[in-house]
Simulated scan of single mutants.
Amino acid sequence: MFKQASAAVGHITNVASAYTWLSGGSALTSFLAAYNWWESNPRLSTFLLVLGIEAALIFIYALTFVPRPGTCWPPFWVGYLNPLRQVSWRFGCVLQVDKLPSVRTPIVYEFCCGLRANRGAIKPKRFYLEARGVPNVPVKIQCGPTFESAENIEEIPSGTWFLCSARLLRDYRAPDDGKTNHPTSEEFFQNYDELTLVFEYDEKIFKKRFRRATLLKIVQFGSERFAAPAPKQPKLKAAE
């Protein structure tokens, strides 16, 4: 029963992702019609009111949680860009997907995001990813041409975006050779499942949990590049 309900909700949200405008328009139309016919036909108005509420809920859910076309992250993540925060975050396709050399097998090789201090310099202390079944994964911050751990940085100035990166390995007991020691999408969800970003700075701690369902959408988004057919090219004339 629960699985059937979950599948139904998933189907509704998939529809809403393609027709967000339709659900919003339906809600508005139903509310206006219910208001206009409330005295003449209260039974029909009640039905339209319920229909409008359902359409409004689908619209709100789609507007908040369903990725827009060409993206792979929920729209509400834009709230982390709020400049009123002491530290703003830029989250998008946080998992980078590539293919193994000479083998078209998608791998998940990196977690990346961006941060910006908005009010005064901050002093980072620790920065890492928590994941199930593996040790904490260190997240490094871009410092000019290199990436450095938070423990090696004295302070981060305000007003500038800095890229943050964590290398994701299949086996953390083996070195990162940049070629083979990265998990496939299946191995990633076996070893990591969910991720929690933890950033300790000054006397504060920022935590952001990335749920499995969201990470799965991001990995699928990156993997589709390798499944897509090659773009068509102009056909040259045959040599005479």
Results as ranks from 00 to 15, higher is better:
P75T: 01
R43N: 12
E187R: 13
P157G: 08
Q220W: 06
A239D: 15
L81K: 09
G222H: 03
I141H: 09
A150F: 11
S158E: 15
R212G: 03
K3M: 09
P75Y: 01
V66C: 14
G120C: 09
L197V: 06
N181L: 01
Q86L: 01
I205P: 07
R116K: 14
I60V: 12
V198N: 07
M1N: 09
R90Y: 12
G10P: 02
V78P: 05
C143P: 07
L28Y: 00
K179I: 02
L57A: 14
P69K: 05
E39G: 03
K140E: 14
L49D: 03
E39Q: 14
P124V: 03
P157C: 10
P74H: 00
R212C: 13
S40C: 10
C112G: 14
R43F: 12
I153Y: 05
K208D: 04
L216N: 09
Q233K: 12
Q86S: 10
F127R: 00
G10N: 13
I122Y: 00
W161N: 04
F162M: 10
E155F: 08
L63K: 11
F221N: 15
E187P: 07
P175V: 15
K208S: 10
L63C: 06
K208Q: 13
F2K: 14
V9N: 04
E224T: 07
L51A: 10
S149A: 14
Q220D: 15
L100E: 07
F31I: 11
N136T: 01
F210A: 05
E200T: 02
N191H: 05
A56F: 15
G114D: 11
F147I: 11
F65M: 05
P145G: 10
A7K: 11
A27D: 02
R85I: 08
T64R: 11
K179N: 12
F65C: 02
R119A: 13
A8L: 10
N14P: 06
F188D: 03
R132A: 11
E54Y: 08
N118T: 04
S6H: 08
L216P: 06
P67Y: 00
D177F: 02
G92W: 05
Y128G: 13
R68G: 04
V87W: 06
